[in-house]
Nucleic acid binder design. Structure first.
Lengths: 193, 193
DNA sequence: AACTTTATACAATTTAAAGTGTACAGATTG
DNA sequence: CAATCTGTACACTTTAAATTGTATAAAGTT
């Protein structure tokens, strides 16, 4: 009474699950799940795909594909590929997991630091005005001073985040956390890299 | 014709904006904005607050506070504090920016790695079964083999993420990216830490 | 220039997450 | 043990994000 499934179907099923898994991970990165499905589709196809093909593979509307691919190219995790004799736009994706992680992670955090440093700048100015206002009582001055210190600490924190971003972006992180933990030894054993 | 605002009001306004800023950042971390408002409220109060006080400060319902604080304690960024002579639950929050970042970041990624390694495990078994199925053609075997390699690479990637998590969790990251970039020099100048 | 093909702007819909109000259970007090 | 206080389960509402369908602009073909 077991349902008959061919091995080919089983393989397809596995791929589908991997695709959903990647989709789920994208949500954890804070990006739409669809991005994950697009990555999987292009990866399994083994070549650049156009919007219609992607809509087909992901089971979504072409409109959505258009939107998502634009988003992906803006994040630098997809790019248009020239395909001979077709006027459709074809897209390839970054296939290196590590690089995708780094790109999405740093992109997100760079935005955060930029936004926050901008706001802190404005707030800091405002607090200085309050501090130097002739009507400011001792108590007011005290609180303003306290908030200014908070703001400075906050900026230092975002500068730390910026340096973290730089650590990943420059790939320096791989010196401290190698992709393959055995690399350390390997290096010692071989003459060239 | 300018609206008259007292300095005290201006200070309150600043605090409110900082609170919203933290809320916004929580969204970037992938957590509900309300968490940020709770952190700010407790920080500015300078003491543990109970659910009613938090509802008051954040302008939200007590029910929501209950939910959010439970979430926060589960993430280890808030904890119940004993307050003499009150039977209400009072909460304190982690006040160190860096630690909050690390806690939320690592918590999120730990979940991801656990989930993914589990799935890869199952998928890998399934692929082996397909590979060893007597009905498997050369082509099927080839594709299965390929997918098995993918799966292994994927697991190696998640193990890298695990090591990244460990780097932050252990605070070792501060050796490579110090909170204060001048620490490096400071260390050289002093006898004790 | 009319006709096709392709991508996308825009408005509408669906879906998922955040948040609320009521009701209730467990603990505490008189 | 009746009366009150506190936190939360549960069902409902609101809000924001993802996704779709239609309409249109831009480019390519005949």
């Amino acid at each position: 009474m077991t349902k008959k499934t061919t091995l080919t179907e089983q393989l397809e099923h596995v791929k589908h699950r991997v695709s959903e898994q990647i989709a789920e991970n994208m949500k954890s990165y804070g990006y739409p799940a669809t991005i994950g499905r697009v990555i999987a589709a292009i990866y399994y196809a083994g070549r650049a795909l156009d919007l219609d093909e992607l809509a087909e593979h992901t089971g979504m509307s072409k409109t959505r594909m258009s939107q998502v691919l634009r988003e992906m190219t803006s994040y630098n995790i997809a790019e248009k590929a020239f395909v001979k004799g077709s006027r459709k736009d074809h897209y390839t994706v970054e296939e290196d997991y590590y690089q995708t992680f780094i790109t999405l992670f740093t992109g997100n955090w760079r935005e955060v630091t930029i936004r926050n440093k901008k706001i802190e700048q404005k707030i800091s100015e405002e607090l200085h005005d309050i501090y130097h206002d002739p009507e400011a009582t001792e108590e007011i001055k005290n609180e303003a001073k306290h908030l200014i210190e908070d703001s400075k600490a906050s900026v230092r924190y975002f500068e730390w985040i910026e340096r973290i971003v730089e650590l990943f972006d420059s790939h320096e992180i791989f010196n401290y956390v190698p992709k393959d933990p055995l690399d350390e030894n390997k290096k010692a054993y071989r003459f060239n890299d």
